[in-house]
Design a protein around this nucleic acid. Sequence first.
DNA 1: CAATCAATGAAGCCTTGGCTACATTGCCCT
DNA 2: AGGGCAATGTAGCCAAGGCTTCATTGATTG
Lengths: 141, 141
Amino acid sequence: MPQSKPPVEASLPERFSHARNVQANAVMEDYVELISDLMAEFGEARIADIAQRLGVAHPTATKAVARLKREGLAVSRPYRGVFLTDAGAALADKVRARHRTLVDLLVAVGVPPEVAELDAEGMEHHVSDTALAAFRAFLEK
Amino acid sequence: MPQSKPPVEASLPERFSHARNVQANAVMEDYVELISDLMAEFGEARIADIAQRLGVAHPTATKAVARLKREGLAVSRPYRGVFLTDAGAALADKVRARHRTLVDLLVAVGVPPEVAELDAEGMEHHVSDTALAAFRAFLEK
DNA sequence: CAATCAATGAAGCCTTGGCTACATTGCCCT
DNA sequence: AGGGCAATGTAGCCAAGGCTTCATTGATTG
Ligand SMILES: [Mn+2]
Ligand SMILES: [Mn+2]
Ligand SMILES: [Mn+2]
Ligand SMILES: [Mn+2]
């Protein structure tokens, strides 16, 4: 007796809840990528530099770094710079690659580079691995 | 004397701050689109239906609707359904069209339709008018 | 070597958007 | 007409991510 096949597409509530879930990690992703950049440039990431590049006040950066530490993505000691853990560094690499591929795709599809960069900063966090693979395939074509 | 042309691309802090700004409207956009759908289906949008489709508890929907009203996008009276203002309806149309175009683009580029739908729910809010126009041009090609 | 000042930390405020628990209301049905 | 129940409202909690203000620390430099 054939089971009635459940719908492949996610229900509406599931789609919204998925988007909310992804969004909850977006800020952490940007911090991790930025810290990785600063570590590459200066060998460490200072709170002041993080805050400045993100365009937030320094206590905002401090709280975010506290959360990164709590989640095992970064380490730091008082009055010292911030450093990524292996997990943090791995996440940074992933986020950076995804950002670049998305920008490339947007440009390939006709979006002006400056606009692509602007839009990508928000869109990137919602690009799934599946979509990313599709983007790469499209770009190679 | 030639002015040194300021950089066309937004500075990093500006990019992040732009993304935060856009994000602040994302939830409202989804509510407005959903209310528009429910009005088309039932003639009104009930809090219970909004909450169910969004996958949130009903007080969450109530609070969001309060914000929509405060921002002039919706109207409602106690124990009655929610309705969009002209501004709200216009926003809903815009959001719906953008959502569709983005999904179409993702599919056109090789993303499986179910995945496109899932990813688009979060990405859509960051697609600028410029990018949208580029998407449409690409899709017509 | 010490003073100054920039960087960091700490405290506490706000809004948004989640939630649960409980109170109220209105609608349907007997 | 009235009771019961589903829908709505209300209160109050939490975490995240903004902010300002003030305290502390450490590094530069005179
Ligand atoms: Mn980003
Ligand atoms: Mn990025
Ligand atoms: Mn959405
Ligand atoms: Mn949508």
